[in-house]
């Protein structure tokens, strides 16, 4: 099975980072992975996104117009990408910053107040990790234990940050499970 996840938001929200962690988790599970960023000066100030393709077979085309799932961290990215998501995909909406909805009845829309949860944990910087936790708990594309390991590995050089990021992951999971 192949799945494609679009992570999108604005520069500075740690979009590429959660794509990276997710891709690592898939790799650790022995799956094929490709992580494809948007690049170049258009990233400045505008929407930043990355696409992570995972598969149990070698990945052919890494170019995907219609991703299976979407994690939208700001309004422009929800507006831009929600119409492209495949039927039955998971759409995570950062409802702290996005007042609108995907406006589709054929996807599994999950509202996650990621920035508010992160602020309660002490810093909005971990809003991306909250959203990642919620997405993985809902889509179950990778195991949650491996995800925890990959978050730890990602912050290995800044060990102080590990507890708050792990907590952010759990909070995201909670939202997904209670929704």
């Amino acid at each position: 099975m192949q799945s494609e996840v679009m992570f999108a938001g604005f520069g500075g929200q740690g979009i590429l980072l959660i794509g990276d962690i997710f891709a690592h988790a898939a790799m650790e599970e022995g799956r094929e992975v490709a992580w494809i960023p948007s690049y170049g000066p258009e990233m400045r100030g505008g929407t930043a996104y990355c696409l992570v393709v995972t598969s149990d077979r070698p990945i052919g085309s890494p170019i995907i117009r219609n991703p299976m799932h979407l994690v939208a961290m700001n309004r422009p990215s929800l507006e831009k990408f929600a119409p492209m998501v495949k039927t039955n995909g998971v759409v995570v909406v950062n409802s702290s910053l996005i007042p609108i909805r995907a406006d589709r009845s054929d996807v599994d829309e999950l509202l996650v107040p990621a920035n508010d949860i992160a602020k309660d944990l002490g810093t909005t910087k971990v809003a991306n990790i909250v959203a990642l936790g919620a997405f993985v708990a809902r889509s179950k594309i990778v195991g949650f234990d491996i995800l925890r390991q990959c978050v730890k590995a990602m912050f290995a050089a800044k060990e102080k940050l590990i507890p708050i990021n792990l907590e952010a992951l759990e909070q995201g999971k909670k939202v997904a499970e209670e929704a």
Binding site: E32, A34, W35, I36, Y39
Partner: peptide, 10 residues
């Protein structure tokens, strides 16, 4: 090409 340069793969 730009994609091979920019993408991450194992």
């Amino acid at each position: 090409d730009g994609l091979i340069g920019q993408m991450m793969e194992p």
